[in-house]
Design a protein around this nucleic acid. Structure first.
Lengths: 213, 213
DNA sequence: TAGATTGTTAATCGATTAACAATC
DNA sequence: TAGATTGTTAATCGATTAACAATC
């Protein structure tokens, strides 16, 4: 069984997409097997960590052999849910919403954008990357009639809390938040923040602290 | 002195922008003083962690009183380098580059976008959000004549390593990478990755693992 | 002064690394 | 079989939390 009731730490979970990427690249290069040591050298982590991480989910390797790349990739895909699809809607078709609607990598990773919502009249009824743009008034109806797993929040700062609450109330399971604020909802809604400015500030800090040395 | 040679852990550094945001909001609300306990309740962390974090950089509080909000905000701004400005260029004016060029929050946090580079002839010479779009051929000259602290990499996957290397060689101090790959440069260049798809996959994992319970 | 809250040391917890028996 | 490498336990390291003396 791939996922028991034992709690996996978020530190491990956040490393999974990285394994996914490296294994995908190895597959592309035609590599069929790899040991934790070889992978650790490529990734710049310890072989110990790789084995510990993978064994949170099951014994995917074989003593004396290592890991079969295709098999390990499949297992990690399954853990990350990429074996099924996630239905995603975008709320807010500003510059960021536009960029996300056109980002092709999401589909490859198992995420299908099935609708975009905004309030600007001139946008309603158009399509972006073949995705229909609807009015926010149609949101509730749409979520009731379609399985919506994830809502991408790319709306102005001030509107974020109210729309997040609305999506949570509608039963959307996850929110991907691009506003520079931390969301807390009283629903069973998972939240993942992007916080671009925070990331840029961390880069600024790194640069400054290197200068001082 | 605000920053000694003692090494601050990245875990602490990544929390700084969050303190910055909360203190900014408190300032806006007219709050003049706050204790670590009050702030801890707002932020959902322990008061101990807040005091530990802040004391990595100096004693900004006062026994029996707490912290002066304006003063603490100023100190954290200084630590994050927001008291001076960072000059930033965007490489790649696709959908993401466009979104970033128009994102107003960066300026507020101390980052000025001073140029955009692309190769599409129809874009060269235009402006986006008052920022001049130049050809990649002009990049080296531009970097030599202007202080460029940070390069934002929003170019196609395949071109990322070569352009990253070129910026590193030109002495750009930090790269903000939007491609789903890990960069490693032989220069003194700090790198901060955004990895949007990774973040979305973590959200997918959270949703799935909650379902299984 | 008495009360409150910091700065800081000590204790705890969790995550990473090392080591090695199991086994392919 | 002998060599290699995993899965897993034990040791270490670092980060978080608790406690409290210092002090405003």
């Amino acid at each position: 069984m791939s996922n028991d009731n034992k709690k996996i730490s978020l530190a491990v979970v956040r490393r999974l997409p990285r394994y996914y990427r490296y294994l995908y690249d190895l597959l592309q290069s035609g590599v069929t097997r790899i040991s934790s040591r070889e992978l650790s050298e490529k990734m710049g982590v310890t072989a110990s960590q790789i084995r510990q991480d993978l064994n949170c989910f099951g014994g995917f390797g074989q003593q004396g052999y290592g890991y079969n790349v295709q098999n390990l990739f499949n297992e990690i895909s399954k853990i990350l849910g990429t074996d099924h699809r996630f239905n995603v809607i975008i709320i807010g078709l500003g510059n960021m919403g536009h960029a996300l609607a056109n980002y092709e990598n999401f589909k490859k990773r198992g995420f299908d954008i099935i609708g975009i919502f905004d309030i600007k009249p001139e946008l309603i009824g158009t399509t972006v990357n073949n995705i229909k743009v609807m009015h926010m008034d149609e949101l509730d109806e749409f979520v009731k009639n379609n399985r919506v797993d994830i809502g991408i929040l790319s709306v102005p700062y001030g509107q974020t809390p109210a729309i997040a609450d609305r999506l949570g109330r509608l039963g959307v399971k996850g929110l991907w938040n691009f506003s520079p604020m931390d969301l807390k909802l009283p629903y069973d809604t998972e939240i993942e923040n992007v916080h671009l400015s925070d990331s840029l500030m961390v880069l600024g800090y790194k640069i400054d602290s290197k200068m001082k040395k």
